[in-house]
Write a protein that binds this DNA or RNA. Structure first.
Length: 890
DNA sequence: TAATGGTAGGGGAGGAAAAAGTCTACATAT
DNA sequence: TAGTGATATGTAGACTTATTCCTCCCCTAC
């Protein structure tokens, strides 16, 4: 790279920050800011007036620092330490030259026994924090225009200054969605990047590119396809088209863990450099982290729709097809994974079909990203916290909070300690498990209640932090006596705001006030785009405000303090207990439930307005007795409230809106909202609750249940309503026990290696008839249909349908006998008894015989394998569509 | 060359442990 | 009255069969 040369004209450019990094120029760092102007021009600004630095605690470190060639200067300054209320002290600011060398110097200083501060902050964030530059926020760059061929950007500036400016809206981002297809060289295997080439790549554009909205590259000519001579050319063209289209966002479905790593490996194999970022020299990076990858491309942002949907939507399944169906009402094109090779090598029509399939996948990913506005939240979070959009998308809460805190603490003259080391983390975790208490849950009064008012604390933990001035910087160390000290329950005491205002309370106040302002503004906004931006902003403000408590009690946090975390939760427990006690003793109203920050009060009135009035009155009274700014407020009315257990209830809810009282059914924790039950259970439980809560007609509900059970028993329920899904949270072998979804994955792995689901996937399964453990009878629904395996109706009645329903009816005083006993038709108990029978030996009538089933693993065979036994070694049984018999095949 | 906010709580499935039946051999009483 | 066999009853130990308890796992509430 050449030194950016000043031209005489000085310009001022406003842009939104997309990415920041640095490069070395003659051993000195140059910060690069990639952005986009209001009229969608790309900008890259270079800033070379900033050097890395850290702090050291003692003067005698200077001696050894003199020996370090990296050290440019050491300067004595005054700073405050974060942990504990203490005054300013002297520290020595050590300025270095090359950011990449900081870890080495840091280590040597640490080894010499000194304390070091802020020596592990990424250089780009060091720069952004010190200059008030935030990801996706607006800056005004002033400087001379310059030119270099090292970056791809319309405007290039050698920046004299970069200042944050206030601007709410967002520049439209240009998005590229892509999808690759590869073909296994060996028939019947799954493609592996090590051996098998990429044969097709589809690109779909959010803004028309060269008059088209999509493009398919392939290593074979065909209708509507951009042909390439070989894979190398295909990959080069991929690079070229990305750079010509110049997207801000690169998206696709599961690109982070499949398409991108695959492409990178193929590029390496083919000798193609992966330079499709806005830097012409830096290659795109793909880091393997355990079994997942983290990818980055300079100047652009990678957004994987699969990961975003998984984080933001609670769905039962996350395949592209399932997600598209649920969120867009659309389907993928019908090409099986295993048939891609066949279609690619097939006739013109088949090849065309493959191209269309490939294009559709990219299109669906793009549609999901845009129509579901998947980026809005992350853009807002970036703006609030300051981190880059890429990190907002792929990082967790810690990154955001830490970046945010660093800025605020630095501004007030505090310096950060280093990130904790593994040993410290271990110690913290083991102590924490024993000592950190959480919220208090009031034992529910298990019966059907009427007219229950729900009162809850507004932003409970943030308001506790504000009320007690809770902050590491106000924590009183040891037994120091401070006038007017604030003492929440527990061991931690804090200086009052008159002595020192806590940084975190300050931040929270701003966040909450800002949110109030944004919400107010939101009511008047007509413009759709601005509404979206502001809505996301108020959401992000809420998320950030609520995250501080969790962060303080997180063992890997830089600013961690168990006593402080405990002070917050203990205070919460005290407040809810006090509230419940007051409501019961002073007002004589029973508290029938409550969880962490809410109290459910059984009211005497029937009329909603009267209930609200009385509840509000109670809140006002209690608020005068609560510490600081803590505020209890009336939230909603449950006309009927049916608590089943702690954290499990159903209610007929009425909320006061502008248009009067709005009703709905609310269920918490029970099977209707859980994803690890089959859909049938969810539907039936929902229907039963609706009947019970609104009509209070137990008989009707029971009759309804009986009908469903009979349908189930007689095989009239479609199989897709019986599919249970569970997440595979770790590798199969690291499970200690036996579990249905894990066993099924093992089975699928044995049937077709490579195609089975893996860690992190949700596994759908149905329980089939048989005599082994339930877990061994979990089967792939597709496999069941292909092989005509019998569903275990008894399992679905006894283990899926009945337990949740019994729990509900039990609270209403309907016992199992009443639920199952004789009605006009055959009672359910009789059905169950009858059902139990076929577990024993069963003869298979010749007419029904359709194959053989393994006694051990339930694998199905149309013909007896040559070995005479199942592949697992188990014996084979004659079988019919109704299930296996007991006669062994010998 | 890894990054990861918190605790409380319900409930299913499996498996181990404890408890309750069942069987058997033997002793004793009638 | 003592000895004998049939029968009933009691009891300890071996073995089998439900129950109960605990752990792991998943997912949710807040």
């Amino acid at each position: 790279m050449t030194l950016p040369s000043y031209k005489d004209s000085m310009v001022s450019v406003d842009c939104q920050v997309l990415d920041v990094d640095y490069v070395l120029l003659q051993e000195k760092p140059v910060v690069r800011i990639f952005g986009k102007t209001r009229d969608s021009q790309t900008v890259c600004a270079f800033y070379d007036q900033f050097s890395p630095f850290f702090y050291v605690d003692r003067e005698d470190a200077i001696e050894m620092l003199k020996e370090e060639p990296q050290v440019q200067s050491v300067q004595k300054i005054k700073r405050k330490l974060v942990m504990g209320y203490q005054q300013e002290r002297a520290v020595w600011k050590v300025t270095l030259q090359n950011p990449a060398k900081t870890p080495e110097v840091r280590q040597r200083v640490l080894d010499a026994g000194f304390k070091v501060y802020e020596a592990d902050i990424l250089f780009k964030y060091r720069y952004m924090s010190d200059h008030g530059v935030k990801g996706m926020d607006w800056v005004r760059i002033e400087g001379g225009t310059t030119n270099t061929n090292t970056v791809r950007s319309k405007i290039m500036l050698s920046a004299k200054s970069v200042e944050p400016i206030v601007c709410y809206d967002d520049v439209p981002l240009r998005v590229l969605s892509f999808d690759i297809e590869c073909v296994a060289t060996k028939e019947g295997t799954v493609p592996e990047a090590k051996y098998d080439p990429v044969v097709m790549i589809s690109l779909v554009f959010s803004e028309p590119f060269q008059g088209s909205d999509s493009l398919v590259l392939a290593t074979r000519p065909g209708a509507g396809v951009h042909p390439c001579a070989d894979e190398k050319e295909l990959l080069e063209e991929f690079n070229r088209f990305i750079n010509e289209y110049d997207p801000d966002i690169i998206t696709g479905f599961n690109i982070n863990n499949f398409d991108l790593p695959y492409v990178f490996e193929r590029m390496a194999k083919c000798g193609v450099r992966a330079v499709f970022g806005r830097c012409t020299t830096k290659q795109a990076l793909s880091k393997k982290i355990g079994i997942t990858y983290r990818n980055s491309v300079t100047g652009r942002v990678i957004a994987d729709v699969f990961q975003l949907v998984k984080k933001d939507f609670m769905l039962k399944r996350y395949s592209l097809n399932a997600v598209s169906e649920d969120l867009l009402g659309e389907q993928k094109e019908d090409v099986k994974h295993s048939e891609i090779g066949k279609y690619y090598r097939g006739d013109a029509a088949q090849f065309e079909k493959l191209a269309s399939y490939c294009r559709k996948d990219s299109l669906l990913a793009l549609d999901l990203l845009l129509k579901k506005k998947l980026l809005d939240k992350y853009i807002a979070l970036s703006k609030v916290s300051g981190i880059l959009l890429q990190d907002s998308l792929s990082g967790g809460e810690t990154t955001r909070i830490e970046n945010f805190l660093l800025r605020e603490f630095n501004r007030k003259g505090f310096i950060f300690p280093l990130k904790p080391q593994d040993k410290t983390i271990g110690n913290r975790e083991s102590r924490q498990r024993k000592e950190l208490g959480g919220g208090f849950v009031i034992e529910p009064v298990r019966e059907l209640h009427s007219n229950v008012a729900v009162l809850d604390f507004k932003s409970m933990y943030p308001s506790i932090i504000l009320s007690y001035n809770i902050c590491p910087t106000t924590l009183i160390i040891g037994d120091e006596k401070i006038e007017g000290a604030l003492k929440p329950p527990g061991t931690a005491n804090f200086v009052p705001p008159e002595v020192r205002k806590g940084i975190i309370p300050g931040i929270l106040k701003t966040l909450l006030d800002d949110r109030g302002k944004v919400k107010k503004k939101l009511r008047k906004i007509q413009d759709d785009n601005l509404y979206r931006v502001l809505y996301a902003k108020q959401w992000a403000l809420k998320i950030m405000a609520n995250a501080f408590y969790g962060y303080l009690g997180y063992a890997r946090a830089v600013i961690y303090n168990l006593d402080i975390a405990n002070a917050i939760t203990a205070s919460g427990r005290e407040s809810i207990k006090f509230t419940a006690k007051t409501v019961q003793e002073k007002y004589g109203l029973p508290v029938v439930y409550g969880d962490t920050d809410s109290v459910f009060v059984k009211m005497k009135d029937e009329d909603f307005d009267k209930i609200e009035q009385k509840a509000t009155e109670i809140c006002t009274d209690i608020n005068t007795q609560l510490p600081g700014v803590m505020e209890l407020e009336f939230e909603k009315i449950f006309k009927r409230f049916l608590p089943l257990a702690k954290k499990r209830y159903a209610a007929w809810k009425f909320e006061h809106t502008e248009d009067g009282w709005k009703e709905s059914i609310e269920t918490k924790g029970i099977e209707t909202v859980r994803r690890d039950w089959c859909p049938l259970v969810g539907e039936v439980v929902a229907e039963v609750l609706e009947i019970l809560l609104k009509e209070q007609d137990i008989k009707k509900a029971v009759t309804y249940v009986k009908g469903i059970v009979i349908d189930l028993n007689e095989g009239r329920i479609p199989i897709n309503k019986l599919i249970v899904t569970k997440t595979m949270t770790k590798a199969g072998k690291s499970y200690k026990g036996i579990q249905p979804h894990v066993e099924l994955v093992k089975k699928m792995e044995a049937r077709s290696p490579g195609e089975a689901p893996g860690v992190g996937d949700r596994i759908p399964y149905v329980i089939v008839r048989g005599s082994q453990l339930v877990s061994h009878r979990a089967e792939d629904p597709v496999y069941i249909q292909e092989h005509g395996l019998p569903v275990d109706a008894t399992y679905y009645i006894e283990n899926q349908m009945l337990p949740p329903l019994e729990r509900i009816f039990d609270v209403l005083g309907v016992d199992r006998m009443e639920l199952l006993g004789n009605g006009r038709q055959m009672g359910l108990l009789d059905i169950l008894k009858k059902n139990k029978k076929p577990q024993g030996p069963r003869e298979i009538p010749a007419a029904e015989f359709n194959g053989f089933m393994c006694k051990k693993c339930s694998a199905f065979f149309e013909q007896v394998p040559l070995s005479g036994a199942c592949t697992c070694g188990g014996a084979l049984l004659f079988s019919s569509p109704k299930g296996p018999g007991e006669v062994l095949v010998r």
